[in-house]
Structure formats: C-alpha cells, structure tokens
Amino acid sequence: FFSSKNTLDFKFMNHRVPAHKRYQPTEYEHAANCATHALWIIPSILGSSNLYFLSDDDWEAISAWIYGLGLCGLFVVSTVFHTISWKKSHLRTVEHCLHMSDRMVIYFFIAASYAPWLNLRELGPWASHMRWLVWIMASVGTVYVFFFHERYKLVELLCYVIMGFFPALVVLSMPDTEGIWELVAGGVLYCLGMVFFKSDGRIPFAHAIWHLFVAFGAGTHYYAIWRYLYLPSTLQARVSK
C-alpha cells in the first residue's frame, strides 16, 4: 500500500525542497505547467489587438500596447521557461536565465495591468505620480531578481504583494469607480493563487493551479479594461442591460 502511494506521489508531486533550492516538478506537473499558460497565449494576443482597434486616441492606443505586451509577455515567457525546464538537456544556463525572466516579467505584467487605469482615468495631483512610480517599482523588482534570485523566497512573494496592492490604492480612490468590483475580484483570484504558488511539494500540480488563478485573474481584469475603458458608450450601455 505504502509503495503504491509513494509511486503515485512521485508521479504527481515530488517531495518539498529546502527554502534555498528549487522545486523539481514531476513529468505530469511539467506538462500541466506548460499547458496552463500556453493555452492563453493566442487569446491574450487577440484580446490585446481588440483593445488596440477599439482605441479612439493615442493614449488609448499606447495603453493598449503596454497592457498587451505585459499580458502576452507573461504567458509567452512562462510557457517558454516551463517548456525548456521540462525538456532541458544541456540548457542549464538558458533555463536559469528564463527562470529569472519568468520572475521578472511578473513585475512588468502588474505594472502593465495598471497602465490603462492610470493613463485613461482621471487622477488627482498626487495620484498621477503613480503612472511612473509603478514602473520604478517594476524596475526595482527586476533588479532584486537579478541579484537575489531564489535566495529569499518570502521576500520575493512580499515584493509581488506590495507591487500588486500599492497602485490599487490609487485606482480605488478614482472619482469614476466603474470597474472597481472587477478589479477587486481579479485581485482576490491572484491572492488565492499565491497559496498554490508557495505550495509545491505539498499540493499536487500546485504551480499549474497557480497558473490557472493567474489566467482567471488576468481574464477578469481584461474584461474590466475592455468594458469600462475601451468599449464604446452605446455598446457599454447594452452590456449593462
């Protein structure tokens, strides 16, 4: 019985590793990690293109490009990294660089997700500084990953949380509150996903489940951006009905 159980464990989940080491997914987990983000590459490209074609001015077009690059970049980099990590042979250096890129791109994805709200909504005189502060935060996070990758995992998680919540204070204080509930719902999905992000070796397919929470959170935020920032007012009124 115990032998059978251990065999199943090694198929669907490896043992948890020490804090300073990287978890090695099983073959099944590798496949799930690749698939759960690869599936969203084409939808993210189509969705980003849709926002660009709905743009009425330069600021909307620029914001669509920024958001689209962040959204597509997240899924593409993640998929490439997990594919190389799964099928690697002698690509240790490439895998390491892609793993760093996979972590770095999350910061820019967060900044890009806020860009349409910060660029297209009315902001107060102090709140407007968040338009560039969010990119400084993303840059600081990138530098942190470059120098301390995989060393202080709890600090890394804390950086993501701060990066995700700090700009939200500005968005939530905007005079126009349309889309706020969708933003909150997406944020809740990301936070729930973090439980699985730190659960490799405890929950089978934990990282793939985290990927799904990211996809659903991103989808919720995309819907809010599409509906409240880009959808023409006449169509928006129909959707509201």
Rank of each mutant, 00 (worst) to 15 (best):
1 F>N: 12
2 F>C: 12
3 S>F: 07
3 S>M: 13
6 N>Y: 13
10 F>E: 15
10 F>S: 15
13 M>N: 13
15 H>G: 13
18 P>K: 12
18 P>F: 12
22 R>S: 06
25 P>H: 10
25 P>F: 11
33 N>Q: 04
33 N>K: 03
35 A>D: 09
40 W>T: 13
41 I>A: 01
43 P>R: 12
44 S>I: 06
45 I>C: 05
48 S>Y: 02
53 F>E: 01
54 L>G: 04
55 S>A: 14
58 D>A: 13
61 A>H: 03
63 S>M: 00
64 A>M: 01
65 W>C: 04
69 L>W: 11
72 C>S: 11
73 G>M: 02
77 V>N: 00
77 V>D: 00
79 T>L: 07
82 H>Q: 09
82 H>K: 10
82 H>E: 07
84 I>M: 03
85 S>W: 08
86 W>E: 03
89 S>L: 12
93 T>C: 05
96 H>W: 03
98 L>T: 00
99 H>F: 09
99 H>K: 08
101 S>L: 01
102 D>K: 01
104 M>L: 02
105 V>P: 01
106 I>S: 01
110 I>A: 00
110 I>T: 01
111 A>C: 03
112 A>V: 01
116 P>N: 02
118 L>P: 01
118 L>E: 00
119 N>V: 03
120 L>Y: 08
121 R>A: 10
124 G>F: 05
125 P>T: 04
131 R>D: 02
132 W>M: 10
132 W>C: 09
133 L>P: 02
137 M>G: 07
139 S>C: 15
143 V>P: 09
143 V>G: 11
145 V>C: 08
146 F>I: 11
147 F>V: 07
154 L>R: 14
156 E>L: 05
158 L>F: 14
160 Y>D: 10
162 I>R: 03
166 F>C: 09
166 F>S: 10
167 P>F: 01
170 V>G: 04
181 W>S: 04
182 E>F: 09
184 V>S: 04
184 V>G: 03
187 G>W: 00
189 L>I: 13
189 L>T: 14
193 G>N: 11
200 D>C: 11
202 R>I: 07
205 F>T: 03
207 H>T: 09
207 H>L: 08
210 W>A: 02
212 L>T: 02
217 G>K: 02
228 Y>E: 04
230 Y>H: 03
235 L>R: 13
235 L>V: 10
235 L>M: 14
236 Q>R: 13
237 A>T: 14
240 S>M: 15
